[in-house]
Amino acid sequence: MTTVRAPGVWKRSANLRIGFLYLLPSIILFAVFLFYPMIRTIYLSFFLTDQNGNAAVSVGFENYSYLLTSPAFLNSMKATGLFVLYTVPVGIILALFFALLANEKLKGIGFFRTMYSSTMGISVAASSVIWLFLFHPSVGVFNRILLVLDFPQIQWLLDPEWALVSIAISTIWMNTGFSFLILLGGLQNIDEHLYESSRIDGAGYFYRLRRITIPMLSPTLFFIITISLINAFQTFGQIDILTKGGPSQSTNLIVYSIYREAFINYQFGTASAQAVILFIIILVVTLLQFKLVERKVHYQ
């Protein structure tokens, strides 16, 4: 016998079988807790449901048409949009500013880095409770400062004009730590030689910032912008503790709205329709980000 016997299908597929074995835990968990519920959510969004979340009456797109004409939901969408607009740009610029400061090679810089990143270690619930106190109409710090400066007092969380802004301020603070850490990591990945060669060319600080730092940091910026956008759309904890969606629905952001519709009003059908809309928004935002930034981002 001089011919080579080809190994059987069983043996040739060994890698496939073993590979899947290693991926199986992830695949099962994703299937059960992500893909199935996503499909189920889409399914439920076309139904009216009973108290136990079972589909009862098929209503087609009625849940959606109801939502898109409901002033409450439109208000919630508007609030969410405004909230994203308030938090994302300011949050990232602030974090970038901190990261640039903390990237200087100075004595004791580690201490400052720890301070800037500290909010990452503080939960949404704890932060919200702290800010609840800071915003307190009489004993809160903000109104005390206003009092000292002889400005009129502000009902931070109780005034529909101010509530969303207040929530945005506290959210920016909460997210600073994470954005800071990521951006600092990005800054430290930039090749030192680039700065050295530009220094030899006599470039000033802001020239270097514009021509080297920002372009080289763009992948990191892109990442943190995407994450911040997604996070902003998913805001829940601070609403639940600080305002419960009020006053007069001004802070009823979409996830809080879904939560209330589902677990307080037991309207799982319309809640699911809202969840699908949230999913679509995030999908579009992510895809747009990728498309848009793919062309502009400078990758090393």
Partner: peptide, 21 residues
């Protein structure tokens, strides 16, 4: 690719069926 796609599903959009599960 399937793994990447999971990043696009916000967890909050799946919480209702997950709760019932």
């Amino acid at each position: 690719f399937l793994f990447i796609s999971t990043m696009m599903i916000p967890w909050e959009a799946t919480m209702i069926p997950n709760f019932f599960t």
